[in-house]
Computed example of a mutant assay.
Amino acid sequence: MEIQIALPDDVAHSLELKWGSLERRLLEMIVIVAYREGSISVGKVRELLGMSTRLEVDTFLKATGVELHYNEADLEADWQTHKQLRQEGNLSLVIRH
């Protein structure tokens, strides 16, 4: 679906100077609201914004002040992934001081 809005040229220009692409900014705003209210998942956020990883989505959402949805099912899935990576020898420990 394509949605069009009308803005006075001076307002559009001013906002573009501040935000860059208005189309992108509006898409991000819609995605943020939809995620906050539970209408779309993290996977859909990633798809709509063209992001390649969950970490990229989490970073974007945190930067915009959105509280991440994380429940017991997410924890269990992460734990299973951790176990699988450890069994395959693909898990490395990084300690930062």
Score class of each variant (00 low, 15 high):
Ile40Lys: 13
Ser14Gln: 07
Glu16Leu: 03
Gly38Asn: 07
Leu27Arg: 14
Leu48Phe: 07
Ser21Thr: 03
Ile32His: 10
Leu48Ala: 13
Glu37Gly: 09
Val11Tyr: 05
Glu23Gln: 08
Arg46Asn: 04
Trp19Glu: 10
Ile32Thr: 07
Leu17Phe: 03
Leu22Phe: 12
Glu23Asn: 07
Ala34Glu: 15
Leu48Ile: 11
Ser39Asn: 13
Ser14Pro: 01
Arg24Pro: 06
Val31Leu: 08
Glu47Tyr: 09
Arg25Trp: 15
Ser39Ile: 10
Ala34Lys: 15
Gly38Ala: 07
Glu28Ser: 10
Ser14Val: 03
Leu17Lys: 01
Tyr35Cys: 09
Gly20Lys: 04
Val31Pro: 13
Val33Ser: 11
Val45Lys: 07
Arg36Leu: 04
Ser21Gly: 05
Leu22Cys: 04
Glu28Trp: 12
Val42Pro: 10
Gly20His: 04
Trp19Ser: 02
Leu22Ser: 00
Leu15Thr: 00
Ser41Met: 08
Val33His: 13
His13Ile: 01
Met29Asn: 05
Val11Lys: 08
Glu16Asn: 05
Ile40Ala: 12
Gly43Met: 09
Glu37Ser: 15
Ser14Glu: 05
Met29Arg: 00
Ile40Met: 11
Val45Phe: 15
Val33Asp: 15
Gly20Ile: 05
Gly43Asp: 12
Ser41Arg: 06
Val11Asn: 05
Ile30Gly: 09
Arg36Phe: 04
Lys18Gly: 01
Glu47Cys: 12
Glu16Gly: 02
Met29Thr: 05
Leu49Cys: 13
Val31Gln: 11
Leu48Asn: 12
Ile32Pro: 06
Leu15Met: 06
